[in-house]
């Protein structure tokens, strides 16, 4: 019940609902007014009492990013440091790249951390976004049996896929419309292959299950490096480093052109910080240094082999 107590103190500081709730209570005669006042008070009550009190009012920005940064736990490392360094609190929304960009376009987010370079370039060209800077990348790897029956080693990624298809060496797909699956389909598309037939299986399950199926059937599969490292399947990384296998993250600052309530200064603070030496160091060290590669200041064209 302490949060009710906190409510009283917080309400006293002039939350937006205060005036209404107060008025309703004073006019008070009709029961309906009292109910409405109680409802407003309750809603506020539940809303307060988190650790928001620590942050100065107003210094709060919204970061729209992809699920990969949240699911990996990277943001959990970075954001508290950022808040400590700059005083900006961050609400990070982990959504799909497309949704993240849409939130930016509508001015519902102040800064974006996304990995859809083509869509980003088009979005920036629209004019509501500010500077876009390279932050980091992580990558997918092609894993398969150590014997490499299709001969995918040291090939461009697209060529490796084509070889798997032409030799019918066996490939296990997640088939779950995940980001990994999307990248796999993109590679097939670039290779000019429509995967079907006995050599191509779809699990419809997560990465872990898919890796297990691939290793049990000595087949190839496309996996993100993080899951490969944590699962340690009896499969080898046969093909890696091709630009087609990279997830390249950019930070995009939004401007007031996107919406009146956008906070460009918060966006700049975050973008400056994440490409700064401290954050880049943390990114490089995250996950024993194997998950993300800090790329700030590098030439994007030079990424990948």
């Amino acid at each position: 019940m302490t949060w009710y107590v906190r409510l009283v103190s917080r309400v006293g500081r002039g939350q937006p609902f205060r005036a209404r709730a107060g008025m309703a209570a004073r006019k008070g005669t009709p029961v309906i007014r009292r109910v409405l006042a109680a409802v407003a008070a309750l809603a506020l009550a539940a809303g307060c009492g988190t650790d928001q009190a620590a942050a100065p009012a107003g210094k709060e920005l919204i970061l729209a990013t992809t699920t990969s940064t949240q699911d990996s736990g990277l943001l959990d490392d970075l954001l508290p440091e950022f808040t400590r360094d700059t005083g900006w609190r961050v609400k990070s929304l982990a959504v799909g790249s497309g949704q993240a960009i849409e939130l930016g376009r509508r001015g519902e987010a102040d800064v974006l951390l996304v990995h859809s370079p083509e869509a980003e370039v088009r979005f920036v060209a629209e004019g509501s976004a500010g500077p876009r800077r390279l932050v980091m990348h992580n990558d997918f790897v092609l894993a398969g049996p150590a014997g490499d029956p299709a001969g995918t080693r040291n090939q461009p990624a697209v060529e490796a896929m084509r070889k798997i298809a032409s030799t019918g060496a066996g490939f296990v797909s997640r088939g779950d419309e995940s980001g990994t699956h999307a990248r796999e389909k993109q590679l097939w598309h670039q290779a000019g292959v429509t995967p079907s037939g006995g050599w191509y299986r779809s699990t419809g399950q997560g990465m872990g299950a898919t890796l297990r199926v691939a290793s049990e059937t000595s087949a190839y599969t496309l996996t993100d490096r993080a899951t490969y490292l944590t699962q340690k399947p009896p499969l080898e990384v046969l093909n890696e480093g091709d630009k087609a296998l990279l997830n390249i993250y950019h930070v995009i600052e939004m401007t007031r052109k996107a919406g009146d309530r956008v906070q460009p200064e918060g966006a700049k603070a975050f973008a400056d910080w994440i490409v700064g030496a401290k954050a880049q160091g943390m990114i490089g060290a995250f996950g024993e240094g194997k998950l993300f590669v800090p790329d700030a200041g590098k030439d994007e064209a030079a990424l990948g082999s």
Binding site: C48, I62, E108
Partner: peptide, 14 residues
Amino acid sequence: RSGPLGALGLLYTP
């Protein structure tokens, strides 16, 4: 933020 109640700043709060 751009919605009718955006001024309250309630989105992403309990």
